[in-house]
Write a protein that binds this DNA or RNA. Sequence first.
DNA 1: AAAAGTTAATCAATCGTTTAATTAATTTAA
DNA 2: TTAAATTAATTAAACGATTGATTAACTTTT
Lengths: 213, 213
Amino acid sequence: MFFKKPKIEIDAREALLQTAARLFAKHGFEAVSTRMLSTEAGVNIAMIAYYFGSKEKLFEAIIDERLPKSREMLIGFFESNLEPWEKLSAIINHYVERIFNDNSFTKLIYRELSLQQRPAHSERILNGILGNWEIMSKIIEEGQDKGIFRKDIDVIMTLNSIFGTISQMVNTPCISAKVLQKVNENEIFDDDIKKRLKSHLNQMVKSHLLINP
Amino acid sequence: MFFKKPKIEIDAREALLQTAARLFAKHGFEAVSTRMLSTEAGVNIAMIAYYFGSKEKLFEAIIDERLPKSREMLIGFFESNLEPWEKLSAIINHYVERIFNDNSFTKLIYRELSLQQRPAHSERILNGILGNWEIMSKIIEEGQDKGIFRKDIDVIMTLNSIFGTISQMVNTPCISAKVLQKVNENEIFDDDIKKRLKSHLNQMVKSHLLINP
DNA sequence: AAAAGTTAATCAATCGTTTAATTAATTTAA
DNA sequence: TTAAATTAATTAAACGATTGATTAACTTTT
């Protein structure tokens, strides 16, 4: 044989992780049965316990795998030599890009925080998010120290608005879809809307933060 | 007998409606069993089927009861003789007041829209919200026509930010609580934070919308 | 007497998890 | 290099528990 058989199939563990992230985001943790999950992933139901211990620990594995990536991005911009506003703008654009590419994980963690049913999950997620907010806060404070940003703004509430705007698009795209008269909810996540969201967020935060917009 | 025995106890139907709204908001629809619900409401489990037909129809009854109230408030401000900005500001303040008073219903409908598991529910909720957004849009357009509001802003994205900011506080108060170093999540919903949220939203939307802020 | 409301018990279905048996892959020993 | 031994991976079947819903008997109200 000249060519090895290409290994297209991913292993059971990875299949479970990916399928679970997608299904949990779509239907919610409780609504996804272990049977539905294992069938969709194309593996035996016992593989959940074998690789993760339980359905709940599978959820935690998803969180632990994806949360750290967000932090790396933020630190990258934070430590760059961009001006404060450029840093903030770059981060906003990066977040928008990400959720338009794949919003399942964001949907997942926001709903988990909203429910607060599983303290272990919430704790993990909260610690991750807290670190991100601290970095964002520092950037805004940096801009204030440099005399570029207004000092009479509420930093935490401003972050609430930035992430609130984004999560509104992630968690209830059906509203925007209906208002924009799209037939299908997924039509929301196209290049046109992405551009509009970026432009709007930048414009709004800019006029809110900058002393000389 | 001079005095009738005061009827303090609410009937089974009302007890189920109130308890269900609270529990669904806290734990999610799937996580609330009919046994947990009926026990908490202090009625027999069979009362759910007797009064509503099923657990799902009980959910729909909650929606149909509360959604119309939101519309009345909006129309009231819309038809008032306030200036566009005053209308918008009053509505924002009203929404903030409401969620700080009781956020369970808001939490409920946002999670339902996020999940989109039960199309009948989503449809009901969406129609209600769509009407609200249309009224808000008209107010903004009214301000634009009067030359008070900027014309180069994205109306729908602006509404996304307003409601996104509010729903961020409703759905993930734990983030704000952690950032603001509150011990308990519920400490977020106090008068201080309410004032801050109102002030921030007004300030941000004002500088975003008004030509002469 | 009729209707409305309420009860405890039970229904089949599904839940997450576990078991014991079997196959596949890897390591060890000759 | 080969065969045996060991470990890892996977399977179908079953576990007890819980799910939403229903039944028929009973009590209260009209």
